[in-house]
Each structure stands twice: as C-alpha cells, then as structure tokens.
Design a protein around this nucleic acid. Structure first.
Lengths: 188, 188, 188, 188
DNA sequence: CATGAATGAGGCTTCATTCAT
DNA sequence: CATGAATGAAGCCTCATTCAT
C-alpha cells in the first residue's frame, strides 16, 4: 500500500473526524466523517485501513499538534519558570482555540480502540513537556515523586483548566494564570 | 401479585454494565451487559427503558457512591485540614478499590448520552465535597477563584492520581499522600 | 381447558381488541389490548390460547353482531322490498354507530391470521342476509348470477356506503337511502 | 462513478414486496422481501429509507398501474357507455391478471402506515376513472349524489367482483359483465 | 386463576467494509 | 484511485408467550 495520492484528502478526513467526534463521540459513523470531509465513504478506507486506524492516527496527530503548540517558541535562554509558564500558556491557548480538537482528544484518550502503542507514542510526544516539568520540580517538594506522576498531575490540572476556560471564556486568561500559579506551587 | 421486580436484578445489571463499560466503553452491547448480569437481554428493558436510561442511572449511581465513599466518616469535630485529607484519602481509596467503577464513570462523564439533567445532578451530588474545599481554600491563595474552578482542579488532580495509583498499586498510598500535599499547597 | 371463570373479562378483552385494532391494525400488541381491557397481559392468554385465536374469535363475534343487527326486527309479514330495506338500514346504522367494530372487521377480514374455517363461519353467519337477497333478486336482472356473487356485490356496496356515511355523518341517512335505491335497481 | 443505483433492483424489491405482502400482509419482514428480491437486507434501505416508505411508494405505484390499466386505450370517440365499459373491463382484467397486486393493494389501503398524502395521491391517480363516472351518471338516478360517493360505490362493486372473478376464474368474464350491467343500472 | 416479570426469537435499521463501475 | 451501491453482521428494542408468585 503506497502512500495515497492526495494529502489534502487525508487532512480533510482528519479534520472532519475531529469535528464529528468532538460532537458525537467515537460512535460517529465513518460515512458521516467522510461526508463532512467532502469525500466518498469508500474513499476513507483508502486513506485508513480501518476506523480504528483512523482513530489511532488522529490521536497521535492531535497529541503532536498539542505538544508542538505548547513548546512552540519556548525562549531557550530564559529561566525554567518563564519557560514553563510559556509552555503552559501556549498549551491552554491552543486547547481553547481549538476546542473540538481537545474534545476529540478527550474521547480518543479513553477509547478502547486506541492501542497501547499509540498511548505509548503519545507519551513520547509529550516528552518535551515532561522535560520542562522535570527541571521545574528539581528542587521542589515533588522532587522525589516519579516524573510520570507529576506529568499526570499537570495533565489533570490542564484538562480541568481548559474545560473551565472554554465554559467561561471571558476570564480565560485569568483562569490560566491562576492554574499556573497553583501548578508552580506544587512543583517549583 | 406476580414475581416482583427484583432489586437484585437491577443491581446485577448495574454492576454488569459497570464492568463491561469499563472495558469496552459505551459501545458495549446491551446484550452483553444482560448476559454478564445473568439475565435475558429482554429483561434489561424491564429495568431500564432504554440503553441511554441505563447509562444515566448508572452515572448517577456511581457518582453518588463515589461521593458517599469520600464523605463517609469525615470527623465532624476535626480541623478542616484533617477533614479534607480524610475525604481525599477515602475518595481515592474507593476509586482504587473499584477501578472499573471509576473507569466506567470516566466513559460516562463525556458521553453524549448523559443528559444535562444527569450532569447537573452529578454536580449536586458532589456538593458535600465542594463544601469542604470551600472552607479549605478560604484563606488560601485561591480564595478569589470561582469555587467551581477549584473543584474542577481538584477533580483533575484526583483523576490523575487515581490513574497512577491503579497503574502502580505498590505505592498507591504514597501517591495519594503526595497528591494531597500538592492539593493543600494549592488551596490551603 | 374449561370455561374461564369470568365472562366479563372475556368481553372486556374483545371490546378492547376491537378498539385497539381499529386504530392500530392487527400489529397491535397483545399487551396493549390487555391494558386497554384493564387486565394483565398474562391474563389474556387464559382467555385466548394465542393472539390468532383472539383474532378469529373476534372476527366471528363481530360478524355475528353485525348480522344480528341487520336482521333484528325485520318485519316478518312485510314485502321483500320493505324487509330488505329494513335489513340494509339497520346494517348500516349499526356500522355507523360502531365504527371501530366495522374498522376492526375490515382489518380482520383480510388478515392471514383468520382461518378458512372462520371465513366459512362468517359466510354462514350472513346466511340470513343472503336469504333476503335471494328473494330480492328472484325476478330481477341478476336472477341468474350465483347468489354468493350478488351477496359479495351488496357487501362491497355496503362497505363503501358505510365509509362514506362515517366520513360525512351529516348526510348519513341520505347516503344510506341512495345506496339502497341503487342496490334495489340492481337486484329488484 | 460507482455502480449506479439500479432501477431493476428497485423494481425487483417492489415486485417482491407485492408478492410477500399479498400473502403475509403488512407484517411481512423486510428481510423476507429483500430475500425474495434477491437482494441483501441492507440493500433494501438504500432504495427505501424505511419500511413505511417502501409501503407508501408501493401503494402509489400499484394504484397508478391499476388506473393506467383501466384507462389504457379508452376509445376517445366512443360514447360514454362504451368508454366506461372499456375502463371497467380493463380494470377488472388487470386485477384478475395480477391478483397479488390487488391483494397487496387491499392490505395497503387500510394500513396505518400509509400517510394521508399517499391516500390523497391515490385519489388523484383515480381522477381519470372518476371523470368517466362523472359523465356516466350525469343524467342518471345518482346525478345528485356526491361524485366521491358514486366513485366509492363503484370501487366497492369492483372489489367484490374482482374477488369473485379470482375465486371463480372460469366465469370471470361473465361476472365482470354482469357487474358492469349492475353498475350501469345504478349510474346510467 | 390473576399478575406482571422473564424469556428469547425476531424485526427494523445502522454501519464498517468491500467491490463493481 | 474515486465513487457510492452492496453486503451482512450486529445493535437496540418489541412482543407473544411462559412461569414464578
């Protein structure tokens, strides 16, 4: 199976899947995704062998995009506090700007269709973020805890904050900042 | 009077649904749930009008049980720190003891099948926990933030911690304690 | 299977079936019929071995009642024209007074659940009416045609007239009379 | 372009539905209809959105075919008596030639699944026949009655005659003719 | 015998996937 | 390779009938 011809179609399908899954969850029919992408239902299966395949690829793609957004433009020469703040802010800004991506990711994250490999890959993708946190907590109260645990905690806080920011956009920045201060009180 | 509708069966169905949904997600067939409960598939529908109905009732039931576990035995005459610690510990202990309940709850929480009323009811059920948090943060750094936001943060931290406790049961207590200390650093 | 205890229940079930079938057709659930009769669904099956059994008995009962209504009070000493008019008028009056009975009968008449025996019995029940028609057409233009055919024709005309009377009750009597005149022009 | 939706399949489904419904009534399973048509059960639903949809389309199709058969070749320059006789003869010939169509139509005509629109359309389809009858009764004894009533009467007579012709095919023509004479005595 | 829950076959419809065009 | 009809396995739910109370 060589690379399919058009990358546009692949992207359109991913985007459509994101939108549809955000609203309908993983039960969304492939036909609906195809239609939303302006593509025939049969065509979907030349780009993805199976629905689960689409789901897994989407999971990794969204996770990658999220990590990239978080780490984009982190000032290399700044202190760890500033770097982490930058990451946090950009992360939540991305999630707030693309709520469907975030919601789709939430669905995918707990799906039985996402393989262990994908989950593992997801972790690797977040390695950059984890590294920042590693340095952040180096001398803080959680310096003894497993890094993965600290990352998980941060994830949980981020998810909660994002939800709240989406629900109450007027004060989004304020919430983001308050949550970061909380986070820093934990690790820093 | 005919054979009365048995509470045992209802409970068996709920328990079966919990187990199956924890593994398969909400796509789990009603027939499989019925079978797991040792009941004919038709019978399921004398206890729940529809699959969505079952899901909603399960959501509320699990949430109620979770809140009850968290609040059970909170020492009325103790200080707020001790009370909150008690709540936190019992909450996570419950979630760790019944990982399928927790996992099912995670699936249900983001399902489109759960009605706004159920979600609202879920919030009301957690009111006791929220009240504890209210007092905890009274003089702390988050005293200005909306209570709902603080609750959401705590929820996110709890979820993350629970996941980690389940994945690494050997050090479960340690993680629970570390997370509580983190929480307290945020609110207290 | 001895006679069931209560005739009231049997009658209530028949009446309920009539009403429900008139509206919903033969697809109507037995449970709905039972409920309409104020009887438990299980009970229905102590009065009728099977749904088809209920249907057949209902068919015969309604047909019997219809024939009785048609022939009730036919003046024995009157001429054939007057007798037939009496029959016709009473027949249509009954059908108009009990539209559900008539509608149920229409459903039953073409059902595959009605056995050949029941159909045959139905014919026998209409024998009295047929006899009147026999004499009516004795010297008329249809004197050579099979009696059954003439009866069928009259049935068809009656059905059509009834429908029209129900749809346009204001002029019901007028329609009944007009149709009778038409009938008489055919047979008399 | 993919395999185009085939008119053959649609027709095969209609024909299969006609045959099955004639025998089993409207309770006939869609799966059985599909099988009889030599088509997968899923395929039925690419041609008809729903079972009720199939039923309604079939109703209109059969009614249309029946009306077309009745009016086909009516001699434009003949007198009204001859024209009406032509219509009547062809109508009954069609019904006798395709008893399943006629039987299916009988089932459909009283079904609750047939919408008011379909019924209305059915009337419009029979308008040509009604017009003939309008002229037939112009100076006859039923000249004052509502046309719809006269049409209904004729319908009833036709139905009865058809039944009889099918049951006694040897004398079908004779019955058809006798019934027409009866009809003419009513309207002409 | 009345009741109504229990049963499980079966109906309608959906949907992932395949395949003819 | 795109298209969208074809396929048939499920899925949810209904319902006639049975059976425990």
């Amino acid at each position: 199976m060589a690379r399919p011809r058009s990358d546009d179609r692949r992207i359109a399908l991913m985007a459509a899947a994101t939108r549809i899954i955000a609203v309908q969850g993983l039960g969304a029919p492939t036909a609906m995704i195809a239609k939303e992408a302006g593509v025939s239902n049969g065509s979907l299966f030349t780009y993805f062998e199976t629905k689960a395949d689409l789901l897994n690829q989407l999971y990794i793609e969204l996770k990658t995009e999220m990590a990239a957004a978080a780490l984009d433009g982190v000032p290399a020469d700044a202190g760890i506090h500033e770097q982490t703040l930058h990451m946090w802010t950009h992360w939540l800004a991305w999630a707030t700007a693309y709520p469907e991506k975030r919601r789709a990711l939430a669905h995918l994250g707990i799906s039985a269709d996402i393989t262990a490999e994908s989950l593992e890959a997801g972790h690797r993708i977040m390695a950059g973020v984890a590294r920042l946190l590693e340095r952040s907590r180096e001398t803080g109260p959680m310096r003894e805890a497993p890094l993965a645990f600290v990352v998980a905690l941060m994830n949980g806080m981020a998810d909660a904050t994002i939800d709240f920011m989406i629900r109450d956009p007027a004060n989004a920045d304020q919430h983001s900042q308050a949550a970061f201060e909380a986070l820093w009180r934990i690790v820093g």
